[in-house]
């Protein structure tokens, strides 16, 4: 007892002090290591392909002596592999991913031109997923076992089976071609027009992912609803709304945030399909185009971009965890 009291005294307000900083530093270290290993995979994957690297990079193009010399010089293909890797990484850290074979421009420029559309698409879809998913999850959890819960769950299961290319063609068929409410093609000019153009694509993109957030919200809420501290709060005469807000939803946030973090990379990748379906000029369609036209430097850069986005977003979620759950700051892993 005395020992417990002493323990309760120390370590009290240490949420963002020494231990907290060490935690963040550890996370950053892990992030750097993951990115480093991922970059190895992205770069050296090229060496998995049997044969001569020059002819790999120039697949489908005329291998003129001039082109061979240019590619060899540009990628340092005559250098040892680790040297090539170092050059690539150092360049990438400076925003230089080499030159695109198809556009004869810097890869960074090519990607930069197309980034806004993809980001806008992902943001719009993300907001939709969060609102609809969390909303559906809450409705289902609060009506657990009743008809509304069943309907919500069945709805989510059906939505989860509509891949974005199916969603795209259905939305185009109905709302763009038949009803003519939305454009079928392109991303528009200016902010307002862009939002308008991206309504259907963002819906098509969001459909599959709503189910993840919805189910996690539901099960996390249901789990909390069954907790004894919720019963205690109820027994103390708090209104149901207050109990739900302060003790159920608040405590259920952690898993919801976690899943949302995992979604980000999935959204960027899935936008390749939506962009292709709606003829949007984003990095997703650029990726497909580059694979199609054998422009490997662009592929590498985009893959690295997606991976980085995933790792960074998840590191942010990790670092935020103690704000939501004080126990994780203390390293008391218990739930």
């Amino acid at each position: 007892m005395a020992a417990a009291q002493a323990a309760a005294g120390s370590g009290a307000h240490g949420r963002f002090t020494g231990a907290g900083l060490r935690r963040v530093a550890g996370k950053l270290g892990g992030l750097a290591l993951t990115l480093f290993l991922a970059s190895l995979l992205v770069f050296f994957s090229r060496f998995l392909v049997p044969g001569d690297p020059v002819s790999f990079l120039l697949r489908g193009r005329k291998p003129s002596a001039e082109a061979v010399a240019q590619v060899t010089a540009q990628y340092g293909l005559d250098l040892p592999p680790w040297q090539q890797y170092l050059d690539w990484v150092v360049g990438a850290l400076h925003g230089d991913f080499g030159r695109s074979l198809q556009f004869r421009q810097d890869v960074a420029t090519v990607i930069g031109d197309r980034l806004p559309v993809t980001l806008m698409l992902v943001v719009m879809a993300g907001i939709g997923i969060a609102v609809v998913g969390v909303g559906a999850g809450i409705v289902a959890a609060l009506n657990r076992g009743k008809a509304l819960d069943r309907v919500t769950l069945i709805g989510l299961t059906v939505l989860s089976a509509i891949p974005s290319f199916v969603g795209s063609i259905v939305l185009i068929s109905v709302f763009a071609v038949q009803l003519g409410w939305f454009p079928t093609f392109g991303s528009g000019d200016g902010f307002g027009d862009m939002v308008y153009h991206l309504v259907l694509p963002s819906i098509a993109l969001a459909i599959v992912f709503v189910v993840l957030v919805g189910k996690v919200t539901r099960s996390s809420m249901v789990e909390q609803l069954g907790r004894e501290h919720v019963e205690v709060a109820t027994s103390r005469g708090l209104k149901r709304g207050t109990v739900i807000r302060r003790h159920v939803f608040r405590n259920a946030l952690g898993p919801i945030l976690t899943v949302s973090g995992v979604l980000v990379a999935g959204l960027i990748v899935a936008s390749t399909i939506v962009e292709a379906a709606f003829g949007l000029s984003g990095i997703g369609s650029l990726l497909v185009q580059s694979v199609d036209r054998l422009d490997f430097p662009v592929v590498q850069a985009i893959v690295m971009f997606v991976v980085t986005a995933f790792v960074v977003v998840n590191a942010v979620v990790d670092v935020l965890e103690p704000v939501i759950d004080p126990r994780s700051a203390a390293g008391a892993g218990a739930r």
Partner: peptide
């Protein structure tokens, strides 16, 4: 019922670790 819970009776539960919201 809320008024009764507020003013007439209060309850103490078995497991205090489960009974107090760990995040507050």
């Amino acid at each position: 019922v809320r008024a009764l819970r507020r003013h007439s009776a209060a309850m103490i539960f078995q497991d205090p670790r489960a009974g107090i919201n760990p995040m507050r």
